[in-house]
Amino acid sequence: MQLALFLVFALVAVAGGVNLLLQRHPIYSALSLVTVMGALAVEYLLLGAEFIAFIQIIVYAGAIMVLFVFVIMVLNAGEVAAPPKSRVAAFLGLPLLTALALLLLTQFTGSIGGAGLALGDPRVGPAEVGDALFHRYLLPFEVTSVLFLVGILGAVVLAARPHRPRPAAGQAPEALAENPAAAAARR
């Protein structure tokens, strides 16, 4: 039963990935990626990682990909013409792909077998994940959060408009309020 589910959703994930590349329209590509993420979440569930599975859905499918779709809609991006066919890719593509797949296959089957992970293993709940994050991986976790903060600040600075003379009265009061990021950008 679990193996059957695993195979079905593995196929869905691969099909979604292939479809992502084949589609001409960015929206359909983005939606294929959502499908891949959903299928991956199911695979996590089958491995007993409920917490990771739903975080995958909430963060990737629910937040990041929504933003992708949003940007595509706002830019009103249309169909994209097929990129020019590269001769190098035509000759080397398939052999390289096969080599990579073989490499991954040999490496990962070994390591997964070694770690003793299997379908239907005991569940890894939020408590175990939290314990690992805040004890064993506390420093990397905190460093990553600082990295995110820097990213957010950078985005705000980039997005803030350059200083212009104060607009005339009638503007919404929120827009006039001094905003630290805008002030930083002005300096």
């Binding site: 409920e50 739903f54 975080i55 859905i57 909430i58 499918a61 629910g62 929504v66 939020p126």
Partner: peptide
Amino acid sequence: LFILGVTSL
């Protein structure tokens, strides 16, 4: 979390 995930979709 399941409910939050489904709502986010």
